[in-house]
Write a protein that binds this DNA or RNA. Structure first.
Lengths: 153, 153
DNA sequence: GTTGAAACCGGTTGTCT
DNA sequence: AGACAACCGGTTTCAAC
């Protein structure tokens, strides 16, 4: 199923605020509640709407530091990638981790309290992994834009 | 206000699934609905809970390609940063953009349909900006981990 | 912080167009 | 496929403990 323009408008609204009532969404796109309700159910069932979450303000929770890491693995070792992947998914400091093309192997996004906390993470968790050959860290100085909403309309 | 352990447990649950009923949350942390309701309201009021959103499945929407970009600006130009920032926030392909320490200036996360769409974005939007001196693109081959939930407990 | 009750409102379902 | 109406369940507020 390919979502039509009405579906996309609904998704755009829910990506910005998932607490909008169906009634509110319906009035914004000039529809009644029934079709809006059905469309949302369908999008959820199809897995196009993946999940509903709340986003927290990291600064108010003392998690002020974001670091992007480039990691290179030691290719000589067998199953380096498997070991690394399994270790990474367990680390709560790592929010994003992807295999990338280019000079290195992985791109990570890490969130911690401060520079000292990052040092602890770096020394005792990330670089402690046997499969890791090299790490470059890029500290976020200023966040210009952050959104979870992808362009749909 | 610093959230206590009970607040943190609530946040952890809402970060994973914001559609949980208060009743359900209450039973999971062995509390009644009233205090859970009050705590959530408080966390929202304080701005610790920033917003509620839905997350979409990008692949099912044909947005299969994620690219991390390192961008360096031409420092000679006055107000390069301001110009760049303003342009970036308007680009729907860019989900994350941060000023970072190190060899380059910005780290971007871009989501587009495919390689051709990225090429269009790269040539006509990103590198078209006057303030941009250099761009390195890292294509995501495999996403190992992606979460919006920060560690709170 | 707990329990219980009451009012309210949105989600949900069925029926009709 | 959309509109309307009725029902049900959760949220919200209040009281008393």
């Amino acid at each position: 199923m390919q979502p039509d323009l009405t579906d996309r408008k609904i998704m755009e609204l829910l990506q910005a605020d998932s607490q909008l009532t169906i009634k509110e969404i319906a009035s914004r796109i000039n529809l009644s509640v029934t079709p809006v309700h059905e469309r949302i159910r369908k999008l959820e069932k199809e897995g196009i709407i993946d999940k509903y979450v709340c986003l927290l303000n990291r600064r108010k929770l003392g998690k002020a530091l974001v670091v992007y890491c480039n990691v290179t693995l030691d290719k000589q070792r067998k199953e380096s990638f498997e070991d690394f992947n399994q270790a990474i998914v367990k680390m709560s400091e790592v929010l994003e981790c992807s295999v990338v093309s280019g000079n290195f192997d992985y791109m990570l996004k890490v969130i911690v309290e401060d520079a000292e906390a990052y040092n602890q993470f770096y020394q005792h968790k990330l670089s402690a992994l046997k499969s890791v050959l090299h790490i470059s860290s890029y500290f976020v100085i200023s966040e210009i834009k952050y959104t979870t909403g992808i362009a749909v309309v």
